[in-house]
Simulated assay, not measured.
Amino acid sequence: MKLIQERATARRGRLRVAYSAIGAVLLVFAVMIVVKLGSGAGGGAKAPSALPTGAAAAEIIQGVTTVPAATLDAVGKGGAQVLPSPITGQAALTDGGKPLILYVGAEYCPFCAAQRWPVVVALSRFGTFTNLGLTTSAADDTYPNTPTLSFHGSSYTSQYIAFQGVETTTNVRKNGQYQPLDKLTDAQAQILQKYNAPPYVPQESAGSIPFMDFANKAVLAGATYSPELLASHTHAEVVAAIKDPNSQLGRAINGNANALTALICRMTGAQPADVCSSTAVKAFQGEFTNVGQ
């Protein structure tokens, strides 16, 4: 499967953070042109443009955190093909008495860039984000400059679940290394070490980022769809696609968001009722029946 092969290739680079630079920037008549020097997946991406700020940034955040229920219902399963893997026999992972979802990624990572979109769409159905940022994946990684969000500096509030989003590095190298960003707590590091490995995730995905732990009820290592779908898109274009239930990108993002929503509903005892009884969630009826509540 193409996506699994991509994950395996990406994992080796993610663990060593040793990709060589594949691009150089030339200024010609005041126009920035990115010249790709090496081969790699995701070619044909646009040169990075300035990130949206001010009202434009706020509009993007508003768009991704308030996807209409009717749009999500219309998508149903959409492009969801890779689902989190249920695990059993583990002590519940909680924070403040609520089921805890842990996300570990990095801003340079294109697979993380892809996965943040459905994660934010899904979690926004259960609570509220504050200070979400906009960024792109690294210019010198596969699928360069993939538009995305960032959990660095953000917070999340919900009466149903708790969320911890960790971005371990930036998307900029210094002396060959991506610069540190968020530091894992000891507890987060222990979760990552234990559950981002067999038997909890497949051998070919072990060690991949993004990594997600859903209250020790299910785990996910890697992205659920290919960053290639985001190639050459701006942040605004991604949000426009999310609002369109007929677009390929919108179906991929919203379909995977619906899958995550259905899983989270198993963790919350089917609360809130309007979300967990929706057509979007019912599309995954039977997929997570062995996930304990």
Rank of each mutant, 00 (worst) to 15 (best):
A57D: 15
Q164V: 09
F288I: 05
T224A: 08
A187S: 14
P227W: 09
A187F: 00
Y19L: 09
R11W: 03
S39E: 13
A223I: 04
G63L: 02
S208K: 01
H233G: 01
P272Q: 11
L230R: 02
T148Y: 06
V34C: 12
S154L: 13
L100T: 06
G255F: 04
G286H: 06
D213L: 04
C109E: 00
G96H: 11
P99V: 07
R16Q: 10
S278P: 00
D95F: 13
S154D: 09
A273R: 11
P84W: 04
L83E: 06
Y178S: 04
K36H: 09
D140R: 01
M267V: 13
L51C: 10
S278R: 10
A280Y: 05
V281N: 05
P272H: 08
R116T: 12
L184V: 07
G38K: 11
T234E: 12
V64K: 02
S247R: 15
D182N: 10
K98P: 01
G96F: 06
S247C: 11
V120N: 02
N290W: 05
I61L: 15
A18V: 02
P245L: 13
L37M: 13
L134C: 15
A252C: 07
A139E: 13
G222A: 11
N258I: 06
G292Y: 01
D95H: 10
L15W: 03
E59M: 12
V281A: 11
Q293F: 13
P110F: 07
G63H: 05
R11A: 12
Q159I: 00
D274A: 12
K282W: 01
Y160M: 09
V172H: 12
V17Q: 14
G76F: 00
Y160S: 06
T94R: 06
Q248T: 12
P245N: 14
A74Y: 00
R125A: 07
K282S: 14
G269T: 10
Q159A: 15
G42Q: 03
V82Q: 10
G78N: 05
L263I: 02
A8Q: 11
K183C: 03
L249D: 07
V75I: 03
Q115A: 15
N171P: 00
S205Q: 14
Q188Y: 08
S208L: 07
G76L: 03
L3A: 15
E6T: 07
S278N: 07
W117F: 05
A283L: 07
S208M: 11
A113K: 01
S150W: 09
A41T: 07
A241I: 01
S278D: 08
G40H: 04
F214G: 00
D213W: 05
P210V: 13
L263F: 01
Q115K: 07
